[in-house]
Design a protein around this nucleic acid. Structure first.
Length: 642
DNA sequence: AGCACGCCGACT
DNA sequence: GTCGGCGTGCTC
């Protein structure tokens, strides 16, 4: 009799990943099987051989016609150990739903691939970067390239090399918006071996893509979201994580994995080269490069020889500059006028939804809060309503302050809608478009893109979603309405994110023929994050930011664990959190922050509390997470502390 | 994830 | 006395 470890795909516990079963013949790692589990049967993955245990084992019921690549099995085991995810969470993410269903007619397609060697001349800098990567001193490289520096050229070259070695390529992209452009570039060179994935695919499409990857006899180039890492490709030669600093690479549901980190593990398992591409790498990644743990390639110039856009910071505390509008300073307005007169395009970036932020009392400073979430309500002028962006509570704005009775209520800050009406008033001849979460349907995004391309739009007003990926030849001017909004979030990454965001949105200005102009409005114009983004002198900011992290014991100098729980009443939740915090505080070598109500303390019928645990030793955090009572949500390397 | 086990409140 | 609430813990 042969004993094997099998990980049941329906096992929900985090303590055991695989259980011992027996079978009449030896089984390969990755073999899919059916096993009895509890009082039902479950699909299972053979993770390794075992010996006869103390307890009596159950037999494997049957074998399926699928053997997963061993690196996929190893990656599953790793996800369980590194993020403390249950087998159910791991396999639901790694395997397509309905894998047991009969596979219909997905014959191995004989994709012919004739790689077209149409010569792309690389710049000196690009060629040098490529040479560094090809020296293979490191398996992983940080490709630190300013927006428009041509990181894609390097991806294409490295992909060609992998394909010629019959190895597949995985390219991760953070958002659907970026994928089509990249896909087009790759398809032009590699044709049908390029496979695009996206998170909006149906179960059936995902299943089909999975089967295609499994049965592919030729190497593929996969362009897709973080889950593309788990496609069962036979050989992987190159993994690219584009815009590797993007926060969307962290999955918010179990398994709560970070895609760049997971890509690192996959590259180790497959010996694939890993490229982390970014214009604004995270401090963690920069730190690894500085320490020489990963390679570093810098692309500081744009291939077209264009200088970086010229940036100006406008001090909003100077009231003279706000004489024509409360939100648009005179210098910004002047630049908008010039750009418009030259028949060029502008982009106005607002880091907020709605028409205004909070309704604030000018006399006592009281802000209107949501009665459920205790977070500021956002004013929507078109509906004349105050809306909570977290629980969707709505009510009409009041005439007098609830706290002091004053009638001096004001709206603070301007959202996209407010800015839109300001611009309409100030520049009535300009053709406007507004793009934010409230207005963005795929069809509308398409329409706006078209309008920008054929220049039927002069000024685009938008939130985060316009900060990335837009490549517009006629865009000269970028205005950041308020650079501070993100700076005051209660999170240790606030400054870094502000820097990244301003950098990214600035990068939209002046591609192709002209040098762009960026105008950054701020109430704290001397803040290092804002100065660094404006001057392109990032080293001093990075250095001081790293020093702060070192002193406060935040990543990259420690690891973080976020434990959260939700219960029906405020007091119950608080008590439970306090009890666990007390227990953990007794453990040496770790720091406990909190417990505190979550940023979104109450949603629907539950109260959320959380505690943050810091430790330089990640294994210590795993121990703590393992010993947490049931009911607690475990998030290792949380993307934020909100 | 399901699904049992087990220990307290509302009922016959 | 019993029925059932869901908090807790196990599944080889």
């Amino acid at each position: 009799m042969h004993y094997v470890m099998v990980s049941p795909t329906e096992a929900g516990g985090t303590s055991e990943f695989a259980f011992t079963y027996h079978y009449h013949e030896p089984l390969a790692v990755g073999q899919l099987v059916e096993v009895p589990f509890g009082r039902r049967t479950s699909l299972g993955v053979v993770t390794g051989a075992s010996t006869k245990p103390e307890f009596t084992t159950k037999p494997i019921s049957s074998l399926l016609d699928i053997v997963l690549p061993t690196h996929i099995v190893a990656l599953g085991v790793w996800l369980h150990e590194y993020y403390l995810a249950s087998p159910a969470a791991v396999w639901q993410t790694m395997l397509p739903a309905g894998i047991t269903r009969k596979r219909r007619g997905a014959k191995p397609t004989a994709d012919t691939f004739a790689i077209e060697h149409h010569e792309v001349t690389l710049t000196k800098e690009q060629a040098a970067g490529l040479a560094t990567i090809r020296q293979n001193k490191h398996r992983t490289h940080l490709l630190h390239g300013v927006t428009g520096s041509g990181k894609t050229e390097l991806y294409l070259d490295l992909a060609r090399e992998a394909i010629e070695n019959s190895q597949s390529v995985i390219i991760l992209v953070p958002e659907i918006a970026l994928a089509p452009q990249l896909e087009a570039r790759f398809r032009a060179v590699f044709g049908d071996i390029v496979v695009a994935q996206h998170s909006r695919q149906t179960e059936a499409q995902r299943h089909q893509a999975w089967v295609k990857a499994f049965e592919a006899r030729e190497p593929r180039i996969i362009i897709g979201p973080r889950s593309s890492l788990f496609l069962p490709l036979a050989k992987v030669g190159l993994i690219v994580v584009d815009e590797a600093h993007e926060t969307s690479y962290k999955q918010e549901q179990a398994p709560r994995y970070q895609a760049a980190t997971t890509a690192g593990k996959l590259s180790q398992l497959t010996e694939a080269r890993l490229i982390l591409g970014s214009a604004t790498p995270s401090l963690e990644t920069r730190y690894l490069a500085t320490k020489g743990l990963i390679g570093y390639v810098r692309l500081a110039q744009r291939p077209d020889g264009l200088p970086m856009p010229k940036a100006r910071i406008i001090d909003l505390r100077d009231k003279d500059l706000l004489s024509q509008s409360r939100f648009i300073s005179t210098p910004l307005l002047d630049s908008l006028k010039v750009t418009l007169a030259e028949k060029r395009q502008s982009l106005l970036f607002i880091n907020r939804r709605g028409s205004a932020s909070s309704q604030i009392c000018a006399d006592c400073g009281t802000v209107n809060l949501c009665p459920n979430c205790e977070l500021p309500l956002t004013f929507h002028a078109d509906q004349m309503k105050l809306i909570c962006h977290y629980c969707n509570f709505q009510r009409s704005p009041q005439a007098t302050c609830e706290s002091c009775g004053s009638s001096g209520l004001r709206y603070l800050g301007g959202g996209t809608k407010r800015i839109e009406s300001e611009i309409t008033r100030l520049l009535p001849q300009a053709r406007l478009a507004r793009l934010d979460k409230d207005s963005a349907t795929p069809a509308y995004i398409q329409e706006v893109h078209k309008g920008l391309q054929d220049h039927s739009i002069d000024i685009l007003i938008g939130t985060q979603m316009i900060a990335k990926g837009l490549d517009l030849p006629n865009l000269d001017l970028v205005g950041v309405i308020s650079a501070d909004t993100m700076l005051h979030l209660p999170d240790y990454t606030a400054a870094e994110r502000t820097f990244q965001l301003i950098n990214q949105v600035s990068g939209r200005a002046g591609r192709r023929q002209r040098q762009g102009e960026v105008i950054i409005q701020s109430y704290t114009p001397e803040h290092p994050a804002i100065v660094a983004a404006a001057t392109h002198l990032e080293e001093p900011f990075i250095a001081t930011e790293l020093e702060t992290r070192r002193m406060l014991g935040y990543p990259p100098f420690s690891h973080l664990l976020k434990l959260s729980c939700s219960m029906s009443t405020q007091s119950k939740t608080h008590a439970k959190a306090e009890e666990l915090a007390e227990t953990i505080r007794k453990i040496t070598g770790v720091t406990v922050l909190g417990p505190a109500p979550s940023f979104l303390e109450q949603t629907e019928k539950a109260f959320h509390w959380q505690l943050i645990i810091k430790s330089p030793v990640r294994a210590r955090l795993i121990e703590i997470a393992r010993s947490a009572p049931s009911g607690w949500t475990i998030d290792l390397d949380p993307g934020n502390l909100l």
